[in-house]
């Protein structure tokens, strides 16, 4: 009964959505409203106005920087939510399941991780700092840092990974992005413009460009650190929950 109802609902939805698809403007046509309305200005003047060769980064950080602030807040809120659900306190930490599991990482893989880790970190820093000129940016670089920490945790276990980045350091680093947005935004207000304006109208054109580049860099860096740290914190919170089920070991 439930299955029949589900199939019927889905079919009705599918018919409606496919019907809409047949009415939409043809994909990839240069005359579409999406390609002719707001976007030409981004493409033609984006490099000059927003200060980024990568137009997507220009839209994300400059034209629509307020959305990005909301997005960063969502990421923080999700971490706070995970702490709220799983418990945040620095209680006794169980031994990570990878330490106990039957398949142990060998000496070879441990060495390989040690060799690869610096490269991963270097790569993420590259992605973070060149995000304004090439594909990449704070989110992508931060995700790479998170992946690196995940690899390290897989090879050496949860306890050793957690020693490297203690709880209170993570809590402090998490605030970099929103703090950065608040400070950079307020700098614009003090300079006589609106919130999140990366330019101070009274300065000369050259110092404006330098200022804007510096502010974009602060934001990229803050977001990169924050995303990396939050990925790490989520991983640790989930691993600890996985583990504290059984016997409590101190690390």
């Amino acid at each position: 009964m439930r299955k029949v109802l589900a199939v019927l609902c889905t079919c009705a939805l599918a018919v409606l959505l496919i019907y809409v698809v047949t009415l939409l403007p043809a994909m990839g046509d240069p005359d579409n409203p999406t390609n002719s309305n707001v976007v030409p200005r981004y493409l033609e003047q984006g490099e000059q106005e927003a200060g980024t060769r990568n137009i997507v980064a220009g839209v994300v950080f400059n034209y629509r920087g307020y959305d990005t602030m909301g997005e960063v807040a969502i990421f923080s809120a999700a971490l706070a939510g995970i702490f709220a659900v799983l418990g945040a306190g620095r209680r006794k930490i169980g031994r990570a399941f990878i330490d106990e599991s039957r398949v142990k990482f060998s000496f070879v893989s441990g060495t390989a991780v040690v060799l690869v880790m610096p490269l991963i970190i270097l790569f993420s820093i590259y992605v973070i700092f060149y995000g304004t000129d090439s594909p990449g940016g704070g989110f992508q670089g931060g995700a790479a840092i998170g992946a690196g920490v995940m690899l390290f945790t897989a090879a050496f276990g949860f306890c050793r990974a957690q020693e490297r980045i203690p709880h209170h350091v993570r809590i402090i680093l998490e605030s970099t992005a929103i703090g950065g947005f608040f400070l950079v935004g307020t700098a614009g207000v003090i300079g006589g413009a609106n919130f999140l304006t990366y330019a101070i109208p009274s300065l000369s054109a050259q110092s404006q460009t330098a200022l804007r580049a510096a502010m974009l860099l602060i934001l990229q860096f803050g977001i990169g650190i924050k995303v990396g740290v939050i990925c790490t914190s989520i991983l640790f919170a989930l691993l600890r929950e996985e583990e504290t089920d059984g016997v409590e070991h101190a690390c």
Binding site: S76, I171, I172, I178
Partner: peptide, 16 residues
């Protein structure tokens, strides 16, 4: 904008 942003900023300060 400050009515919106201030709680957001204080929210990240509180855990610290």
């Amino acid at each position: 904008i400050y009515a919106i942003v201030t709680p957001l900023f204080v929210a990240v300060l509180i855990p610290i």
